[in-house]
Computed example of a mutant assay.
Amino acid sequence: MEKPLSVAAIKALLSEIDYPLDERISIFQVDQRKGVVAALKTWEKRLEKQQLKEDKFKKMLQNEQAIWGRGLSFIAGIDEVGRGPLAGPVVAAAVILPKDFQILGINDSKQLSSEKREKFFIEIQEHALGIGIGIKDHSIIDDINIYQATKLAMLEAVQQLPQTPGYLLIDAMKLPTTIPQESLIKGDSKSLSIAAASIVAKVTRDRMMSEYDLLYPGYGFAQNAGYGTKIHLEGLAKLGVCPIHRHSFAPVRNTVNKKRF
Rank of each mutant, 00 (worst) to 15 (best):
L152W: 15
M154I: 08
E156V: 00
E156R: 07
A157K: 07
Q159W: 03
Q160V: 00
L161A: 06
P162K: 06
Q163C: 10
Q163H: 11
Q163M: 11
I170D: 04
I170N: 08
D171G: 02
A172Y: 13
A172C: 12
M173I: 11
M173G: 00
M173S: 01
M173T: 04
M173C: 04
L175Q: 06
I179N: 06
I179P: 08
P180A: 09
P180H: 14
Q181F: 01
S183M: 03
L184H: 08
G187T: 05
D188C: 02
K190F: 03
K190L: 11
K190D: 03
S193F: 03
A196N: 01
S198Y: 02
I199E: 03
I199Q: 00
V200M: 07
K202C: 01
V203E: 04
D206T: 13
R207K: 15
M208H: 13
S210A: 14
S210T: 15
D213T: 10
L214S: 15
Y216Q: 12
G218S: 06
G218R: 07
G218N: 07
Y219E: 01
A222T: 14
Q223R: 09
Q223D: 13
G226P: 11
Y227M: 06
Y227T: 04
I231W: 07
G235I: 03
A237E: 15
K238W: 03
L239W: 07
